[in-house]
Nucleic acid binder design. Structure first.
Lengths: 137, 137
DNA sequence: CATAATGCCTACCTTTCTGGTTGGGATTAC
DNA sequence: GTAATCCCAACCAGAAAGGTAGGCATTATG
């Protein structure tokens, strides 16, 4: 159970955008260089974030990416969900019909609790919280 | 971010052992049949659990598996750690030297918090807690 | 002892995911 | 028109997941 690079990169990029927001869009190569992320890879990550409505892109020469909402309105959970799909850890937690064994339901208690612990942790932190902690360069 | 079948199967097997403990070892095929787990796959899972000292095996005709400790002394986190390796989600959380970027350290706050939320949830539930909830067949 | 039930071990296989790269387009400020 | 930028689709190597096959070691029982 490990966080994927995609997810880590995505969050770092979002924090970068939150910290370097000065009205103008931030070009992808700049983010990639500052964060040490392979540019083509970051491109696909930002594409997902754009499809999920978390960032907006401006094309053309002075283009780049910007947060679509205020940093205080974007939770870390939003970013992770956009990149990794639903936070749910096991199929039977959201779906009540997938579980037909008695013992299975016993362990289900665990996954359900784990699920809420994770969502709680991730949804309780916003990008604004993170920029406060970052060394603003 | 999804719980692996290995982990789910392992926990179910452990709950089964906790619920069906009558002094005699429970043979693997019995667990496999009761829980709907492919026997050869379960075999490797139990091997890991045995190496981690969570179950003990008896060979020979009336052999099988038993919990190595009392159900109240085995946390779900023990099982997950045995099967999935350390619970840590990202390399830089335990290792202080792996992180050289300022922004990276900002997101580190997230992973650290997530880490403790997960460990808290998993270490707070024991097998005994789970057998209390299971329909004891 | 022979046999059958069991645990133990190694190797293999297929599918999917991860983390990338390549290369070419479309848009737009200058 | 040109250069910077976003957009997109295809491809690729390596690892992991999930599972299978087959054989060896141990032991209770007749």
């Amino acid at each position: 159970m490990r966080i994927s690079s995609r997810c880590e990169y995505g969050l770092r990029a979002m924090v970068h955008l939150a910290a370097h927001d000065a009205g103008r869009p931030v070009p992808l190569p700049e983010i990639a260089a500052a964060e040490g992320i392979p540019a083509p890879f970051l491109e696909r990550i930002l594409a997902k974030l754009r499809e999920s409505g978390l960032v907006k892109a401006t094309r053309g020469v002075a283009g780049g990416y910007q947060l679509a909402r205020q940093p205080a309105d974007i939770a870390v959970g939003d970013v992770v969900t956009a990149l990794e799909g639903p936070l749910s850890l096991v199929g039977c937690v959201p779906d009540d019909g997938a579980c037909d064994r008695a013992e299975s339901c016993a362990s289900r208690v665990v996954w359900r609790k784990l699920d809420s612990a994770i969502s709680g942790a991730l949804n309780g932190i916003t990008l604004e919280d993170l920029t406060r902690e970052a060394v603003s360069t």
